[in-house]
Design a protein around this nucleic acid. Structure first.
Length: 589
RNA sequence: CGGGGUGUAGCGCAGCUUGGUAGCGCGCCACGUUCGGGACGUGGAGGCCCCGGGUUCGAAUCCCGGCACCCCGACCA
């Protein structure tokens, strides 16, 4: 039984000044966590109970799915990460240290290498596969900017699993098993989530999905369809290409002088204002213009290449989307010096005439999927102060390919059903990922198949942010009064508030009830503080967020207690004699 | 890493412009009153004013340099 009179807890009346995000504010105010280090939190008794409840649910669901738990050290030597290339690839993101002999160690940011090596150590036959193993471990990442309390920390707990299969079909099955296990886990945690397609990254076109808790303070932007079940990370959205248009009979392209039109806005104003340039039936808009942007790609080997991107002028380039597609290369700015080296590029008036591997600039030219055959554009004429009108794709220019580079806007059509997409924010609470053979190849994880032939094992990697889930649950369910835990996660089933003078019978009655509830199998927290005013107790109960609040007070004179639902605020007076049965029913349904 | 803000008691803050005994509210301790929505009285305890230099007879306050935290951006298997 949790007794408020002795619990190591101090609730705060006011918001801590360093907490902005609601879950962070309330977890600190409610005495669940305290900041101990930049990006590091201490769990206080109530917080630790909640954390362990989340961990237990995750563990039970993994076990139920047939996955086996192991546990690695967090402190690891450099070598395995050296072999996989991540000792350097991880850059500043990893905490490194040396032992007394000067050998390099790291605090593991993730454990792919170790799992791979462990399986290599023990298994060597296809008969041993498939295998699913997981751990619940503290991870360390040297985040540039920890923020939002538990949502982004430098030390956090993650459940990471790995699947090992002999072939792609096996991997697909393992992936699906994990997918199902994750769905039941998050459902049981009472955590609303959206599954979005994510970029599988540079290591092969395998599937990857993120589980996002849709909360405003989340760091990930995703889209979902207002009509169908489509949802995706903005990086992964595939824009729907319009139908191609017949080229026959389309107006010819013509080059026009358009002085002083350095921006899309000024260009649109000018072509609408001039009688000789007006569209025959309507006003031109920014969407009629083709904006061309040149960037540089920095490749992992340190070399650079130029890339030109063409997209409708009413769209900005979303660098995250570009990087998701050109990865592992990084996108960097095209500088004046680069322009100087390529005289075919006329700054401000770059057009498809100069772009493309076979044109003057020799720069690879990729366009937005909306730029399909037969679409006509107002775009740069590659001469200072001049634009070309009705430059038609497929007739007047042919790009080198397509790229998803444009910003996604709310209201854009869904790639699946065509209805409007909406944009939302979420926090990543899980990620499932068909990893493939990258680590198995790098670390030499092979088994013999039926024919005695060596096969590289294919892997899946699956993560749930356990400590982050605590914050995500808090963030999703809180209200203006405080936290609202789902029952299975809550530090208790019932929070008993005792009011009245110490001389009144409410104290003993509450004690009796608490004992009876505990005997009946419920987890009980009782506010047995003497001399604390009722207002404080009510407010604390609401702040702490136990799903059922029981008040033993005034009603006792009539033989009743009050049962209150934390979330809905609904109150019921219940005869003392029926209290245990009533509460059992409330708590068990 | 860039931009902005803030560091004073456990928490929230004032004091800094114009240098001179470190304050307020909450919380905490003692006694008494109060007891269903953050009660009241009286008396107390609690400080490396972020750190290091400098100016000055004297620095929370002025100057220089760090550090930390928060927000926005960049980054984030």
């Amino acid at each position: 039984m949790l007794r408020m009179s002795t619990l190591f807890l101090r609730t705060l009346r006011e918001d801590p000044s360093d907490a902005e995000v609601p879950s962070h504010r309330l977890l600190v105010r409610g005495g669940y966590i305290r900041r101990a280090a930049p990006g590091g939190y201490t769990w206080l008794p109530l917080g630790w109970i909640v954390y362990r409840n989340v961990e237990r649910v995750v563990r039970e669901e993994m076990d139920k799915a047939g996955f086996q738990e192991v546990h690695f050290p967090a402190l690891l030597p450099r070598e395995p990460y050296e072999i996989s290339g991540r000792w350097t690839d991880y850059g500043d993101g990893v905490f490194r240290l040396k032992d007394r002999k000067g050998n390099d160690f790291l605090l593991a940011p993730t454990h792919e290498e170790m799992f791979t090596l462990l399986v290599k150590d023990l298994y060597s036959s296809y008969k041993d596969l498939p295998l699913h193993i997981y751990q619940i471990q503290t991870k360390y990442r040297d985040e540039a900017r920890p923020r939002a309390g538990l949502l982004r920390t430098r030390e956090f707990v993650m459940k990471d699993s790995y699947s090992f299969d002999i072939d792609d079909a096996g991997l697909e099955k393992s992936y699906e098993q994990h997918r199902q296990a994750y769905i039941s886990t998050f459902n049981r945690l009472g955590l609303p989530f959206v599954m979005v397609s994510a970029m599988s990254g540079a290591m092969g076109g395998s599937a990857s999905e993120e589980f996002l808790a849709p909360i405003d303070v989340g760091e990930d932007t995703f889209v979902r369809c207002t009509n169908c079940d489509y949802a995706a990370n903005t990086e992964a959205v595939q824009v729907r290409a319009p139908e191609a248009i017949q080229l026959d009979g389309l107006p010819a392209a013509r080059i026009e002088d358009t002085p002083d039109t350095p921006t899309i806005e000024t260009l649109v104003d000018v072509v609408n204002a001039r009688a000789d340039l007006r569209h025959p039936d309507r006003d031109w808009t920014a969407a009629d213009t083709l904006k061309n942007l040149v960037v540089k790609l920095k490749h992992p080997d340190g070399t650079f290449s130029a890339l030109a991107i063409g997209l409708p002028g009413d769209r900005e380039v979303d660098l995250k989307r570009v990087e998701a597609q050109v990865g592992p290369a990084e996108v960097v700015a095209f500088e004046p010096a680069d322009f100087a080296k390529n005289p075919a590029l006329v700054k401000g008036y770059i057009g498809p005439g100069a772009l493309g591997e076979h044109n003057a600039s020799g720069i690879r030219y990729l366009v937005d999927p909306r730029v399909v055959e037969g679409t006509a554009w107002i775009t740069g004429a590659d001469q200072p102060g001049r634009h070309v009108i009705n430059l038609t794709m497929g007739r007047d220019f042919t790009p080198d390919g397509v790229i998803e580079a444009a910003e996604i806007h709310g209201g854009d059509p869904c790639p699946k059903c065509g209805n409007a997409l909406e944009i939302a924010k979420g926090i990543e609470i899980g990620h499932i990922f068909q990893l493939g053979r990258r680590y198995a190849t790098a670390l030499g994880l092979t088994v013999l198949d039926q024919n005695g032939k060596t096969q590289v094992v294919t892997m899946g990697s699956y993560g749930i942010g356990v400590s982050r889930a605590v914050a995500a649950i808090a963030e999703t369910l809180l209200d203006e009064k405080g936290l609202c835990w789902p029952r299975e996660i809550s530090p208790a089933d019932v929070h008993i508030v005792v009011t009245g003078k110490p001389s009144e019978p409410t104290g003993p009655a509450a004690e009796e009830l608490a004992l009876a509830l505990e005997t009946a199998g419920l987890r009980v927290m009782i506010d047995d503080r003497i001399g604390t005013s009722p207002g404080i107790k009510f407010n604390d109960a609401e702040l702490l967020g136990v799903p059922t609040i029981v008040v033993v007070g005034k009603g006792l004179a009539n033989g009743t207690i009050e049962v209150k639902d934390r979330k809905t605020g609904e109150r019921t007076d219940v005869p003392v004699a029926d209290a245990v049965e009533h509460l059992l029913q409330v708590c068990r349904t």
